[in-house]
Simulated assay, not measured.
Amino acid sequence: MPGGENQRGATDAQAVEALACGGLVILPTETVYGLAADAADAQAVAAIFEAKGRPRFNPLIAHVADAAQAEAIAVFDARARALADAFWPGPLTIVAPVRDRLAVCDLARAGLDSVAVRVPGHVRARAVIAAFGRPVVAPSANRSGRPSPTTFDDAVEETGHAAADAVDGGPCAVGVESTVVSVLDGRIALLRPGSVTREEIEAVVGPLDEGGEGHRSPGRTTLHYAPDAPVRINVDRAGEGEILLGFGPGVGDPRWSLSPDGDLREAAANLFRRLREADRQKPAAIAVSPIPAHGLGEAINDRLKRAAGFVG
């Protein structure tokens, strides 16, 4: 990070000033740490892509302070509003038709006629965005394809060299990126699973359409969230030179367990941190125990499949 004087965290005012000057800011959210920029500033958005090495076709999420700011840039129907009422602030992203193409530039939207928007649950994130007064894009603050950072130190290690400032908001409570739902052309589809589960969404808006348009969501490349070591999933024991990330009582070394008690929320919060910690040991591979597919397990398995280099 330039200068190094803010390694332990900038103030909200410093972060706002950096954004206003076209700089990048490491910003905490409840899901993962993001690398934020003014959503309207194409040069600043391009700097995010450069820092992350991210494919240009991958759209970014516009983070806003409240639902009113969301509807200023996106066209919400009654079902989109119902989702916002139920889950915001929080880890749900809504993809809807774009209303204000200048507020979220073409590069941030990957040239699409839709925009992905959410109100983050983290108080510091909302405070910075509210003080800035405009939407910010804030993809995960990792180099593209690597595990997302869920601690301040990991975020600074990944992309701090490109950031003008960094806000320390403590460890991320959720630990996996937001659920992404599209509300387009009268259809509602789950584009990316997250901690807001399919069942919770359907309780608000009814059954989801299958299929969806995955290109409208971030984080959908096949190899994603990957450490340097190969990842093997759905295995019961580690091979020679491997580290096993266990799940459930008595599975593997408790020091590496995603959740010794078999708790899916604990596993989600630990997922990227454990992948990073294991990778630093330079193992032959990282093995991961089977994770139940229901509820939050759908999101965990999605991330693990992408870390392993395939989508099942």
Rank of each mutant, 00 (worst) to 15 (best):
Asp66Glu: 06
His122Gly: 04
Leu112Val: 11
Asp168Thr: 02
Pro91Thr: 13
Arg56Trp: 12
Tyr225Met: 10
Gly239Thr: 14
Ala18Leu: 10
Leu275Asp: 06
Thr150Ile: 05
Gly295Phe: 07
Pro97Cys: 09
Arg216Trp: 12
Arg126Thr: 01
Ala10Gln: 03
Ala37Ile: 02
Ala82Leu: 10
Arg146Val: 03
Ala110Val: 12
Glu177Pro: 00
Ala189Val: 08
Gly212Leu: 08
Val45Lys: 02
Leu83Asp: 01
Arg265Val: 05
Ala138Phe: 04
Pro28Arg: 09
Glu213Ala: 07
Ser144Glu: 14
Gly239His: 14
Val174Leu: 05
Asn142Glu: 10
Asp154Tyr: 03
Pro91Ala: 12
Arg56Ser: 14
Thr221Cys: 13
Glu200Val: 08
Gly160Ile: 02
Ala307Tyr: 04
Gly239Arg: 13
Glu210Lys: 13
Ile201Gly: 03
Ile291Gln: 00
Ile300Thr: 00
Asn234Thr: 04
Asp12Ile: 15
Leu245Cys: 01
Thr11Ser: 11
Val64Trp: 05
Ala238Gly: 02
Gly22Asp: 09
Gly250Asn: 12
Val119Thr: 00
Ala13Lys: 14
Gly309Glu: 02
Ser257Ala: 12
Val205Ile: 09
Gly295Asn: 11
Arg143Asn: 07
Glu177Arg: 06
Pro89Ser: 03
Leu184Trp: 05
Ala138Gln: 12
Arg280Ser: 09
Ala36Thr: 07
Pro218Arg: 02
Ala125Ile: 03
Ile48Met: 04
Gly9Cys: 15
Val176Asn: 04
Pro135Ser: 05
Asp38Phe: 00
Ala86Cys: 12
Ile48Lys: 05
Ala78Asp: 10
Val64Leu: 12
Asp228Trp: 09
Ala203Val: 06
Ala226Arg: 09
Val196Ser: 03
Arg109Ala: 04
Arg274Gly: 01
Thr179Cys: 06
Ala116Pro: 03
Asp263Glu: 11
Gly90Phe: 04
Ala166Asn: 02
Lys52Ile: 12
Leu304Cys: 01
Glu177Leu: 02
Thr31Tyr: 06
Leu208Thr: 09
Glu199Met: 07
Ala10Ile: 08
Gly160Asn: 07
Gly239Phe: 09
Ala238Lys: 05
Gly206Cys: 11
Asp185Gln: 13
Ile286Ala: 00
Arg8Met: 15
Lys52Glu: 10
Asp41Met: 11
Leu35Thr: 14
Val25Gln: 07
Asp77Pro: 00
Leu191Gln: 06
Glu266Ala: 11
Ala18Cys: 15
Tyr33His: 14
Phe76Ser: 08
Arg303Leu: 00
Glu213Cys: 13
Ala285Ile: 07
Pro2Glu: 15
Val104Pro: 08
Asp302Cys: 01
Ile61Ala: 11
Gly312Thr: 15
Pro230Thr: 06
Asp185Ile: 02
Ile201Val: 15
Gly3Met: 12
Val128Cys: 04
Val288Cys: 01
Val180Ile: 07
Ser289His: 13
Gly145Lys: 08
Tyr225Gln: 09
Ala299Phe: 00
Gly160Val: 10
His215Leu: 12
Gly145Phe: 00
Asp228Gly: 14
